[in-house]
């Protein structure tokens, strides 16, 4: 350990820099794991049908709405 104030300051800066980079990396990794499934899910559900079909019931509605 050095008692030189310049070295101490440099060490402290190194520590905060490392801690900051670590936090950024952790949040990016977390966001990646969360965002990836939701994006995949959105892509899947976009293709999903709500079940609409032009049944006799629906055709009657269209005919009566005129």
């Amino acid at each position: 350990m050095s008692n030189n104030p310049d070295t101490k300051a440099a060490n402290r800066r190194q520590f905060f820099k490392a801690a900051g980079l670590g936090a950024v990396a952790a949040s990016a990794a977390g966001a990646g794991t969360i965002a990836a499934p939701s994006a995949a899910k959105a892509a899947e559900t976009t293709l999903e049908s709500a079940g609409y079909s032009e049944t006799a019931h629906v055709k009657t509605y269209y005919a009566l709405a005129k």
Binding site: A50, G51, H57, Y61, Y62, A65
Partner: peptide
């Protein structure tokens, strides 16, 4: 889920004056 039952939204279906239309955009 009325759409899956082969029907349309009830609000549009039961509108007495058929002011509210609901269904396939091209048709309505």
């Amino acid at each position: 889920n009325r759409l899956a039952e082969g029907k349309l939204p009830l609000c549009a279906e039961m509108c007495s004056t058929k002011a509210l239309l609901g269904g396939d955009g091209d048709v309505i």
